[in-house]
């Protein structure tokens, strides 16, 4: 694999007295899809938010493309090329689909807005049908598509997805994961994926980390982890 794009070293994050992450080491290489799986409360979303700088890591370092971003303000991190589709999608409910996409392009200016919107509509034709609608009136799956499209509008080097399958029908989940795989294959987009849906995530990812109680318990190639009995027992059999 090629150069490391994102590297976490000994990252520790706390909410007051509660330690959410206990020294996490994670690498995401350029062109890879890396998945992070774990149970509820393992610290998956905290890890993703920590990369974005909110909350901040108390110890350890985060480097992105060779630059230390541990203390960089959140909005500047986004400008460096990390786009996030946050947990619960967080689309702008009263704004139209197009306006949501415009917000996604906020960091990179309006130079190629039209072209990018066309690209998004090609990836998610459903969004084109809904272009004029308020974000809040979309279905869950469409909102997720919008959240991903909005993140892609900034032409990121790294796309971070937090639970893209949350609360969606299996068909829509498949569609979204196919899109992610396709973006990775055709455009070389680097993806960091946080998922509860271990089955889908591990099949999609080149490499994966398993987070247990705020620490990395296991790591390896996605398919390989999928075969391991302890993973199957903990995350797959019950969930299937």
């Amino acid at each position: 694999m090629s150069a490391t794009l994102l590297a976490l070293r000994g990252v520790e994050t706390c909410y007051g007295n509660i330690i959410a992450l206990r020294g996490v080491d994670i690498d995401v290489n350029e062109g890879e899809i890396v998945a992070l799986i774990g149970a509820n409360g393992a610290g998956k979303s905290t890890l993703m938010m920590t990369i974005s700088g909110d909350p901040r890591a108390r110890r350890g370092s985060i480097t992105f493309a060779g630059r230390d971003i541990t203390k960089t303000p959140t909005h500047e991190i986004a400008r460096l090329g990390i786009a996030q589709s946050p947990e619960g999608r967080r689309i702008f409910a009263r704004m139209s689909v197009l306006e949501n996409l415009q917000m996604g392009a906020a960091v990179c200016g309006s130079g190629h807005f039209v072209e990018d919107v066309e690209r998004m509509f090609a990836i998610f034709p459903r969004l084109k049908e809904r272009a004029q609608q308020r974000g809040g009136t979309l279905s869950g799956g469409e909102q997720q598509m919008l959240a991903i499209a909005r993140a892609l509008m900034s032409r990121p080097r790294l796309l971070m997805l937090d639970e893209p399958s949350l609360g969606l029908a299996p068909l829509i989940v498949k569609l979204i994961f196919d899109v992610i795989a396709d973006l990775n294959k055709t455009q070389g987009l680097t993806v960091f994926l946080v998922e509860q849906n271990a089955h889908h995530a591990l099949r999609l990812a080149h490499r994966a980390y398993v987070l247990v109680n705020g620490a990395v318990a296991m790591q390896g190639a996605g398919r390989e982890l999928l075969e391991r009995p302890e993973i199957r027992a903990a995350y797959l059999e019950g969930g299937q």
């Binding site: 909110d54 959140t74 909005h75 991190i77 986004a78 967080r90 009263r94 415009q102 917000m103 906020a106």
Partner: peptide, 24 residues
């Protein structure tokens, strides 16, 4: 203009704004 859109987005969701690179 971008600033007005950012205001409205801020009203809707501050966290999403920050993660999209809006200087809140």
């Amino acid at each position: 203009l971008p600033i007005g859109r950012a205001w409205e987005a801020l009203r809707e969701d501050e966290i999403a704004c920050r993660s999209l690179g809006v200087d809140t």
